[in-house]
Amino acid sequence: MTAVAHRPSAALLGLHRAGIELRTFFRERDAVVFTFALPIVILALLGSIYDGVYEGSDVTTAQYLAPSMVAAGIASTVFVNIGAGIAADRDDGTLKRLRGVPMPPVAYFVGKVLMALLISVIETVLLLGIGVFAFDLTLPADVVSWLTFGWVFLLGVVACALLGVAASSMAGSARSAGAVMNLPYLVLAFISGIYFTPIGELPEPLVTAGSLFPLKWMAQGFRSAFLPDTILAQEVVRSWEHGRIALVLAAWCIGGLVLCLTTFRWRGRRDR
């Protein structure tokens, strides 16, 4: 049959899905405003409350917070948005309609991840902008730091996106999704040393728990790119541990993919 030969490729359809996802996202004004505002408001608030520099360095609390909030911002926009977004797609018939057309399933996920990447880039630019203008954060001038930032960003977004997809199946409906997705995110933000700084002063059992998840490693990776090495004394160990960051994030990418493939439900609980 000639029809089979002309079927559009999954990659192309993934790009089209991303276009549709982005249009849908940016047209819901209130969601856009609050998605971007949450990490920004938290950075502005915490950055203004805490005062002073860390011992042995000239890094202020607000400057320390900025790269960590980039990591938390990615986690909230990507993990929470994708998780809740898929639960909504399952509820309102989006998934059912897509299952009724010849769409390779991977195109749907490619669309979600590309949308997440773009939203994360915007979120990161906004957060770094606040860091630079309000809290005198200096952006690195060397290529190596930006490369570090780049690979941590990419692995982090993909890991959070895949985990969001996997977590979407925990939510019974779109209405419960917000609540379901927020608890794991908030707990992680605390035990990953985002809201509580510096991470070196967190109780050890919490650090151990936080170290199991990607957020702690993303924040550490971003701090390594944006902060001077004099701040290392405030970290859990006196090294940026780039190798370990890459390992943990890559493991979460793979684990997230496996979770997606094994737990993802195209149908709602009523459609069996």
Binding site: M1, A3, V4, R7, I20, R23, T24, R27, E28, D89, D92, G93, T94, K96, R97, G100, V101, P102, M103, P104
Partner: peptide, 20 residues
């Protein structure tokens, strides 16, 4: 998917695509 390409489906109860 080749089978799906031959089908057209209009089901009830969709509430998707709202912002498009």
């Amino acid at each position: 998917l080749a089978w799906r390409a031959e089908l057209g489906i209009v089901l009830q109860g969709s509430a998707d695509l709202g912002e498009l």
